[in-house]
């Protein structure tokens, strides 16, 4: 099952919405940097956010799933036997 819409229709409908989300993201990162203290420079959450943004630039139809996995704890096989 796939979308009944063409790529052109999806882009037409969502272009401004996506642009707005990128602006929100940019403004949020600006906000952190404007208030920057050394205490957050090495915060692992910032590194995660950077990795997430880099992931958006990779090709594929599973970016959302890969972003989810980036922010997920690892599953440990055979945990019930421990």
């Amino acid at each position: 099952m796939s979308s009944p819409q063409t790529a052109r229709q999806i882009l037409d409908r969502h272009y401004l919405e996506i642009r707005s989300k990128i602006l929100d993201l940019a403004a949020s990162l600006d906000r952190v940097e404007r208030a920057a203290e050394d205490s957050v420079k090495d915060d692992p959450r910032l590194a995660k956010l950077r990795s997430g943004i880099e992931l958006l630039l990779t090709p594929g139809t599973d970016r959302a799933e890969r972003v989810q996995m980036l922010f997920s704890d690892a599953y440990v096989e055979n945990w019930m036997k421990k």
Partner: peptide, 18 residues
């Protein structure tokens, strides 16, 4: 929710299948 979801869902499926 959030970072616990993938691991937790996997654990739940493990327990149900066991």
């Amino acid at each position: 929710h959030l970072q616990d979801k993938f691991k937790g869902t996997h654990m739940i499926v493990d327990m149900l299948r066991a």
